[in-house]
Amino acid sequence: MHPITDPPLDSLKPVAPDLWIVDSGPLRVFGLLPLPVRMCVVRLSDGTVWLHSPTRYDADLHRAILRIGPIRHLVAPNVAHWSFLAAWQRHCPEAVSWAAPNLRRRGPVRRAGLRLDHDLGEAAPAAWAGDIAQAVVPGGLGFREVVFFHRPSRSLILTDLVVNLEPHRLPLPMRLAARLAGITAPDGRAPAYLRLVVRLRRAEAARAAAALLALEPERVLFAHGAWFARDGAAALRRSWRWLGL
């Protein structure tokens, strides 16, 4: 097991009523750098289950989720987090797949033949609007990240707009690189390249971010690193200072 990951891996971990996380990985960025990755699991008020940024498929994990409820929604929240979707589709044929704007246009997605049933927008679809609000944070070069707010637990669910890697878990060379990129705990931000991309549409992104902060989330979850388990709104304001908020 890689020290950068947060065991137990590929297992449900309760966060709040009807909200769980699954830690997995590591992913290899550019085939080299190890990176932890996380999925969020929500049981909707109709008893069905919503998977955000699905991590690698695991049969035991699947069975554990089915004890919560039937999996009906698979969410690819930005143009980078889709590579495990197909495996979950094969094992959950009744589930609907939801894609971030522009995801279906990406060459790797088209070449993979990935099935994407619906594109996500600013408004939550009827299937989960009663439980989860959503917004789109835009960037240049086709980047979009759809952000979700789980109303019952007051939890904000991001993907890559915050990366907060714990330095003591990183190999020494990666520790230095992560610090230079501004993605180390306790003050992790979006990676440097992503900050540049989002700044290409900074005014729109800042408006979207301000509206999300106005929700005053109690906790903030994201795909990579130590999530904000308390004082979520304050921690996120620090993390998003680069947006000029």
Rank of each mutant, 00 (worst) to 15 (best):
C92E: 02
F149G: 07
L74N: 03
V96N: 01
L156R: 15
I71W: 00
L74T: 00
W98D: 04
W82Y: 14
A112R: 12
F84E: 10
R105T: 07
S153K: 01
Q89K: 08
C92Y: 06
R110W: 08
P171N: 01
L161C: 11
I71L: 07
D119R: 09
R115G: 09
D117A: 00
A129R: 15
H91N: 08
G69Y: 05
L158A: 01
G69M: 09
R144K: 10
A95Q: 04
L85N: 03
W88E: 00
V147F: 12
A123G: 05
G69P: 01
S153P: 03
L156P: 07
R144H: 15
C92L: 02
I68D: 02
G130E: 03
L161F: 08
R115E: 06
L120D: 04
I68F: 00
F84S: 03
R105D: 14
L141D: 10
A76L: 06
A86S: 06
L120W: 05
R110G: 03
P173M: 14
L120I: 10
N102Y: 05
I132M: 00
P93N: 09
R104D: 03
Q134V: 08
S153V: 02
I68H: 05
H81G: 02
E145D: 05
P93Q: 02
L114G: 01
L141F: 13
D131T: 13
Q89I: 10
A124I: 10
A95F: 11
G142T: 13
S83L: 15
H168E: 14
A129D: 05
C92K: 04
L103N: 07
L103Q: 10
D160F: 14
P173Y: 02
G142H: 12
R106D: 12
L158N: 09
A95P: 12
M174K: 06
F148A: 05
E94R: 14
L156Y: 15
V147Y: 09
T159E: 07
A135Q: 03
A129M: 08
M174G: 09
G139A: 14
W128F: 14
S83K: 14
L74P: 03
V146G: 02
A80T: 15
S83A: 11
L116E: 10
V75Y: 01
G139H: 12
R105S: 13
R105L: 15
A129C: 07
P171V: 15
D117N: 01
H168K: 15
E94H: 09
E145R: 02
I132Q: 04
D131H: 04
A124K: 04
A100V: 11
L66F: 03
L161Q: 05
